Simulated scan of single mutants.
Amino acid sequence: MSWLDETMVGFDTETTGVSTDHDRIVTAAVITRTGSDVSTRTWLIDPGVEIPARATEVHGITTAHAREHGVAPAEALEEIAEILASALSAGFPVVAFNAQFDLSLLESELARHGLVSLAARIPGGQVSPVVDPLVLDRHLDRYRRGKRKLIDLCTLYAVPVVADDLHAADADVLATLELVHALAAAFPAMGTSELADLHSQQIEAHRAWATHFAAFLKSKGTVDDLPRPEWPVAAPARAEASAEGADALF
Rank of each mutant, 00 (worst) to 15 (best):
Q100T: 05
T13V: 15
P93I: 09
D197G: 09
S104H: 04
A189P: 03
H139I: 07
D21L: 15
A76D: 03
D197L: 06
L4G: 02
P123S: 08
L166R: 00
T7K: 07
S89I: 09
T20P: 10
R121A: 13
S104Q: 08
A96H: 04
F213P: 00
A243M: 13
A171C: 06
E78P: 04
V180W: 02
I45R: 00
T62A: 10
S117N: 06
D197P: 01
S39M: 10
F213N: 12
G48W: 02
P73E: 08
R24G: 06
P73A: 04
N98Q: 09
A237E: 08
G221A: 10
P160K: 11
L179G: 05
N98H: 12
R142I: 00
D170M: 09
G10D: 06
G221S: 05
H59C: 11
H113T: 01
V223N: 04
D172Y: 08
F11Y: 12
Q202H: 14
G191E: 10
I45G: 04
A234T: 07
D165Y: 05
I80Y: 11
L153I: 02
M1E: 13
H181N: 10
H167M: 11
T7P: 00
V127D: 06
D247P: 00
V38C: 08
G10I: 02
R54S: 15
D224K: 06
T56P: 08
I45A: 05
S200T: 14
L88C: 01
S193I: 05
A76R: 01
L134K: 02
A237F: 11
H139P: 00
T56W: 14
A87C: 04
L150K: 04
V135I: 12
T222M: 13
A158D: 15
V127L: 06
I122T: 00
D102H: 10
G221P: 04
A28M: 09
E79C: 01
R67S: 13
S36P: 02
T211W: 10
A55I: 07
T34H: 14
I51G: 08
V95D: 05
D225K: 03
G70P: 07
F11V: 09
L4K: 03
S89V: 12
T222Y: 14
G221W: 10
V71P: 00
G114Q: 10
V116E: 15
R121Q: 14
D152T: 14
S19C: 05
D132C: 08
D37S: 13
I51S: 11
L44V: 05
V180A: 01
K149L: 09
W3S: 00
D46G: 03
D225T: 10
G124I: 04
E204N: 11
L226V: 03
L115W: 01
H113Q: 04
E107P: 01
A87T: 03
P133S: 03
E75T: 15
L77G: 10
T7V: 14
A53L: 14
T40R: 13
T192G: 07
G191S: 08
S39W: 09
H65W: 12
M1R: 14
F250I: 15
A53S: 10
L177R: 01
A189M: 06
D21M: 13
G10N: 07
F187Q: 02
L174Y: 05
L140G: 01
R138K: 14
A246N: 11
R238M: 12
S2N: 15
L84I: 11
A234I: 07
S104D: 06
S39H: 14
L179T: 11
